[in-house]
Structures are given as C-alpha cells and as structure tokens.
Amino acid sequence: MDLNTITSVVEVPTRATQATWQPGDAWLAGGTWLFSEPQPELRRLIDLRGFGWQSLQIDAQGLEIAATCTLAQLFMTETPPEWIAAPLLDQCRRALLGSFKVWSEATVGGNVCLSLPAGPMISLTTSLDGICTIWTPEGGERQVRAADFVTGPGCNVLGPGELLRSITLPSSAMRCRTAFRRISLAPHGRSAALLIGRRSPDDGSFVLTVTASTVRPVQLAFPGLPGPGELLAALDQTVAPELYHLDVHGAPAWRRHMTDRFAEEIRSELLERNEGGHR
C-alpha cells in the first residue's frame, strides 16, 4: 500500500538522526506491516537498513540477532552443534504464516516491536532468555529482558524515539533441550496458543514460556522438572484469568484449556531427558 502522507525518507540514518525523532516519524525495517494499511499520521520514514547492521553474530556468549535480521536469514544461519535449541528458530519462523516473500522481508525486530500476542519472534526470544538492546534518542542504550519487552497487545517498553537495536540469545539457553507446541483455530490461522519448554543440560532446571494465548509473555521457572499437578497449579497461580487473550482467533476459556494441555505435553516430552536424549 502506498503511504501518501510521507514527505521524506532517511535512507542512511545515524545516531544523530535518532536524536531528531519527532511525532510523525516511523522506523522502517521490512515494512511488511507498515505498508499493509493506511498510516495517515506518518510524515517521515527512517530506514533501519541504512545502519548496515550485521544480521547475525555468533560467539561464545550466544547469538546476537540484529533488529533488521529477516526471518529467512534467521532460518539459514548455521549454529554450533551443541546448540540443540536451534530447531526453535525454524519452528517459530513457520509460526508466522506467510509466503517465502514475507519471510524474506519481515524482520525479527519488527515482529517483536509490533508486539502482537501471536508474534512468534516474541515467543522465540522470550523462551531463550533473550536480552534486548535498546538505543535511546540521547545516544545511550539500555537492556531489557525479552520476557519484559512486551507489556500488552500492541504495547511494549519502547519510549518515543527509542529503537530496538538487537536481541541476544545466550549460549546457555541455546544448549537446552526444548519442546514446542502451537495451535490456531484454522489450519493457516494466527497462533492462539504457543508454548515452549526448555530444560537445562547442566542442572535440569525447567522453564515454560506461554505466548499467544496470553496478552503478554508469561514465564514459569522451576529448579527441576515439576510434577503435573505442580505445573498446573503454578499456571493457575501465575496466569490470572484476565491475562488470557480475547479476539476472533480464540476465546479465553479455550486458550486456557490449550495452555494447560500443552504445558503437560511439554513437561512429559522433556521428562528425565538428558542432553543426549536418553531417559
């Protein structure tokens, strides 16, 4: 869709450009949502691709994902063999139901910053203990846990002029065994519940991340694998009824039921498995 209110586009931005942020500005990455509907309040686009950020960087600390990294680039990256959580990269990419054309343009940062409950990059980065680096208009930066970045449907912690620079997934999380569950009302519909479980090969600790069924990500952490009753009790205590999302893609009662069901399936799948996959 043409955005006929735009009067200027900054193709090669700098930190100084960020300092001039004003109402009517918008960050442009892949643009798959930005150009999907009218944006009458916008006057200037600032193209993040002009920063020239490297899409992905792997080191001993983990995987740094630039906000401008596309979903296609995320899938194509080669990860160390000990990072057995790597299949989540493709599982979450496929949860964004679109053609290869969309995957080639849509960005990780754009999906996170749009902050929809069903955003699969939110699920990915939250479940793997991602750390978001945010650039501030004053020239500094701050870091926020991915689990705390989204605060509600379409809402997040970014202030005016702030910019998500990257998300780092620590190697400790990438070395964990994971289990993935997702459902939607229609075969090609938006996620209504997306849960990811993670178990550490070091100490056996277990983390369950609930997304899509809730208005914001919810994480539950245990020192070891909980029993079925303990897990469901923790879900009931942590996820208040008002946290379950209501829209045309699913009623809260159904989302809650699927959340409880998937949580137990994930717990069972990861039961007593060690890093080599043995019971």
Rank of each mutant, 00 (worst) to 15 (best):
C176R: 10
A179R: 14
D203Q: 05
T209E: 04
G152K: 11
P160F: 07
L220D: 05
L232V: 11
A147H: 14
G227E: 15
F222E: 04
A147L: 12
P223Q: 02
S166T: 01
E242M: 13
R216T: 13
D247A: 05
G227Q: 14
L235K: 02
P228G: 11
R216W: 06
P228S: 15
E162L: 00
P170Y: 01
A240I: 08
L194F: 02
P217T: 13
L169I: 01
G227F: 14
R145K: 15
D202V: 10
G189F: 02
A179G: 14
L164E: 08
R165C: 11
A233E: 13
A221R: 11
A240Y: 09
T209F: 07
L235G: 00
G159F: 09
G197S: 11
D148I: 05
L194K: 01
T178L: 08
I196N: 03
V207F: 05
D203E: 10
G154E: 08
F149T: 08
G229K: 02
P226S: 10
R165D: 11
P170R: 04
A233P: 03
P153C: 10
E138S: 13
G140C: 09
V150L: 09
G139K: 02
V218S: 06
G227S: 15
A186V: 09
S213Q: 04
L163I: 03
L225I: 07
T238H: 03
F149R: 06
V157A: 14
V215S: 08
S166I: 03
S171M: 04
H188A: 13
L169T: 01
Q219S: 12
I183D: 07
R145T: 13
V207T: 15
L185G: 14
A186R: 15
L246E: 12
G152M: 09
A234R: 14
T209R: 02
P187D: 11
V239R: 11
H245V: 01
L243Q: 11
G224P: 03
Q143K: 14
L246V: 11
L231I: 06
C155P: 07
V215D: 08
L235M: 10
D202K: 12
F222G: 07
R182C: 01
S200T: 06
P223M: 00
A173S: 13
L208G: 10
T178C: 14
A146H: 00
R142H: 12
E162V: 04
